[in-house]
Design a protein around this nucleic acid. Structure first.
Length: 437
RNA sequence: GUGAGAGUAGCUCAGCUGGUUAGAGCGCCAGACUGUGGCUCUGGAGGUCGUGGGUUCGAAGCCCAUCUCUCACCCCA
């Protein structure tokens, strides 16, 4: 019986060094832009009590009903790996009494989320999100700020021409009223809807609004829009968001078909679509959730947030040919090459000392020959090869080979060698700037 | 959860309707060059053809099951 090889679990992947570099670049850009806007990083546990997600995301949502990784041990409560980030942030906000100390807080998080789903393009069981939450205020300027910030982030990565889609789903009373309006409107057409939509009619009428089946699209002609059924207060909030977006010259379009999947959303909801993505067509989704803090046991305070999908973002960057730009990678300063077995120890010592002085120095540990080591040095794009043979050692020098020019010179080990490596580093930098437009 | 396609060397793939020792390119290792990289040439290693079962004189190919990947639906980042 042949043993099955070990593999990463379905829907997960190993982020190999090359990819980690890209992730870090994304994270770096996100942290920068978020911190400039006053958001501070928060790190919550990867799992929470299951009831937290049930309460926040909603009991009858697909995520809670069938997409959570849930574990229970003995008599303890049931725990679930977080399928999204907002619930945890709000929980932490309340647990640490921010609402009593300084109710207005801006947090962001970067980390993996987990959903038990069938993997496909841009959709995995463990996936990374970059998210932000502004808690303790209902200021429509924050809704606009979120959208602006996200578009700026994508722009910085090189994704241009993106546009936000926004909509308002009002408050709970608005939704209860509109739900009835929709049901009333669809009732006579019920038999002509697709089977799925007939199910949606009872589960969540709103979702019929974004069904992609042609016959349903046809039937939807002249369907009432949420925006026409908002209370004056809700409408005023939405108008204020749009006004702010206009003022900030943020590109957006009102799209009545945007209905988010979590129960906690209220008022403003938005997405940043990227058409070429396929099954996962949004790079980012977000919205206001003015009832959630109270729902989780806190005071009645407004909040708004978004989350960016790292995987879809990477797919978009790849499609636009931007991955190389995002991740140029660094060059090691040198490859230390002892010549002859007697020099191995001394060479290793020299490599370690240079590393302690801050230089990135590679060393061969596979017993390769001189030529093979130089080959490695070239492949790793080292700036220099440091050759240490018997001759050099006797004279207390190291032969520094400039791998870009092919020139060699003997340099005394010590401060002079470090100076030489520094100057090679500078040269390379000047060279790369010359090449830039 | 539903449906479709695909799994052959480290990677990308070829392998006609089942027929003898399963191939290429790239990569890897070594040599040409015993103290010098990127180029070239030569040689080498590396495969139970995803896994298990079945049909057959004979299976990488056909059938069944299973796993994984990909894509779509559902849903969503």
């Amino acid at each position: 019986m042949a043993q099955e090889p070990y593999r990463a679990p379905r829907g997960t992947e190993d982020l190999l060094p090359e990819k980690v570099r890209i992730y870090r670049k994304l994270e770096e850009e996100a942290r920068r832009i978020l911190e400039v806007h006053g958001y501070r990083e928060i790190r919550t546990p990867f799992f929470e009590e299951t009831r937290l997600f049930v309460r926040s995301i909603g009991e009858v949502t697909d995520i809670v009903e069938k997409e959570m990784f849930t574990v229970s041990r003995g008599g303890e409560s049931s725990y679930s790996f977080r399928p999204e980030g907002t619930a945890s942030v709000v929980r932490a906000y309340l647990e640490h009494n921010f609402h009593k100390r300084r109710p207005f807080q801006k947090f962001f998080y970067i980390g993996p989320m987990f959903r038990y789903e069938k993997p496909q393009k841009g959709r995995q069981r463990q996936f990374w999100q970059i998210g932000a939450e502004a808690l303790g205020s209902s200021d429509p300027r924050l809704d606009a700020e979120m959208i602006l910030l996200v578009l700026d982030f994508f722009e910085r990565l090189g994704l241009r021409g993106l546009e936000a889609r926004i909509n308002s789903i009002g408050d709970k009373a608005d939704r209860d009223r509109f739900r009835e309006v929709l049901k009333e409107w669809f009732r006579p057409k019920l038999d002509d809807l697709c089977p799925l939509c007939r199910d949606r009619y009872n589960r969540n009428v709103f979702r019929i609004l974004d069904c992609k089946v042609e016959t349903c699209k046809e039937l939807r002609r002249g369907v009432p829009e949420f925006l026409d059924h908002l209370s004056p207060e809700s409408l005023a909030h939405f108008e204020a968001v749009k006004k702010t977006l206009d003022m900030l010259e943020v590109p957006y379009r009102v799209d009545p078909s945007i209905v988010r999947g979590f129960d906690y959303y209220t008022h403003t909801v938005f997405e940043i679509p990227y058409e070429k993505l396929g099954a996962r067509s949004a790079l980012c989704g977000g919205g206001r959730y003015d009832d959630l803090i109270a729902e989780l046991g806190g005071p009645s305070l407004g909040a708004v947030g978004f989350s960016i999908g790292v995987t879809p973002t990477l797919i978009a960057l790849e499609m636009e040919g931007l991955l190389e730009e995002v991740s140029p990678g660094g060059r090691p300063d040198a490859f230390l090459v002892p010549i002859g077995p007697e020099q191995e120890d001394e060479g290793f010592r020299l490599a370690v000392n240079l590393r302690r002085a801050g230089f990135a120095v590679l060393f061969d540990h596979q017993g390769k020959g001189l030529r093979a080591r130089l080959k490695l040095a070239a492949r790793e794009r080292c700036r220099a090869a440091l050759l240490l043979g018997e001759e050099e050692r006797k004279r207390g020098v190291v032969k520094v080979r400039d791998l870009d020019r092919g020139e060699e010179m003997d340099v005394p080990a010590g401060p002079e060698l470090e100076a030489r490596l520094l100057s090679l580093r500078e040269e390379a930098r000047a060279g790369s700037e010359e090449g830039a437009p």
